[in-house]
Structures are given as C-alpha cells and as structure tokens.
Amino acid sequence: MTITEFADGRIVTHDIADPTLTNVDTGKSLVHRSRFYVTERPSSVEGEIVIETSGQLFMTIFPGDQGPYGLVEYPGLLLSVNGHTRVTMDSSTFVYTSFSLNGTATDLCAALAPE
C-alpha cells in the first residue's frame, strides 16, 4: 500500500492486495482481489470530505450511512465494489452523507453466508 499526502490536503492511497475474508461463525472464506486508488480531499462545503475510489476494493458501510442503494440499515454492508465511487463524509461524525457508484457492488456477506 502506498499513501501520499499532498500540500493541497489530498491523500491518495494505492493498494494491490489479495486479502482473505472469513465468516468466523461458519469458517467460510474467500480471497478478495483488491486493486484500487482512493483519493480523499476536503470538500468545498465546510465539514465534509470527498472520497473517490477507482478499481476493485471491499468497503464496509455502517448503519446510518448512505450506501449505493440508499440509507444503510442494521447490520450494515460489506461490499466488493468494482468501478468508480464518490462518497461525501461528514468530517466530525465520519458518516457517509452521499454515495454514488459507476460500476458494480457485490454483497460479500451473502457470499460468505452458509449455503
């Protein structure tokens, strides 16, 4: 993983990894192929951060966040995202206030669920 911080406030992360995700209740596992760039930057709106991703990565989205399908409910989402996302996050609460996706999202909880 490479993280670069720029003088204008941007933080760019580049990652290539193959993490193994495991459902601890069932022992079912999968290897997730992650190849992505993430750019975080202050928004023009006070108190907001814009996060853009490009590539394939897995994302944890918590209840109360905006996700690709609207407001996320309990217990949250674990998604494999392939494409481009643009997320706005409140810098004081870390809650996603908007989420757009140009690509696909696959539910990894369903992929790790018992058969």
Rank of each mutant, 00 (worst) to 15 (best):
I11V: 13
L79S: 06
T53P: 02
F99M: 09
P63F: 03
E40M: 10
E73R: 12
G9N: 04
P42E: 09
A105D: 02
F99Q: 07
S100F: 08
V38F: 03
Q66A: 11
P63E: 03
R10S: 03
G64H: 03
M1Q: 14
G70S: 03
Y96F: 14
T53Y: 08
I11T: 13
I16P: 00
P63W: 01
G27Q: 00
V45W: 07
E40W: 11
D107G: 06
G55F: 05
F99N: 09
D107W: 01
D8E: 05
F94R: 08
R41E: 10
S54W: 07
L30C: 01
G64N: 01
E115S: 15
N23P: 01
E48L: 15
P63C: 02
Y74K: 10
I49N: 00
T93P: 04
S44Y: 10
V95T: 09
P68W: 02
S98N: 11
G55T: 14
V24W: 04
Y96V: 13
V38Y: 01
D8G: 09
D90G: 03
V95H: 00
D65W: 00
S92R: 14
L112F: 11
G76P: 00
T2Y: 10
Q66S: 09
L77K: 13
I49Y: 02
V45Y: 08
F36I: 06
T97F: 02
G47V: 04
G67A: 00
F6G: 09
T53S: 07
G47K: 00
H32K: 05
D90Y: 06
V72Q: 01
L101I: 12
T104N: 11
A113F: 14
Y74T: 12
L71V: 01
P19A: 10
N102K: 12
P75N: 05
H14A: 11
N23M: 04
A111N: 13
P114S: 15
D18E: 14
A17L: 06
Y96R: 14
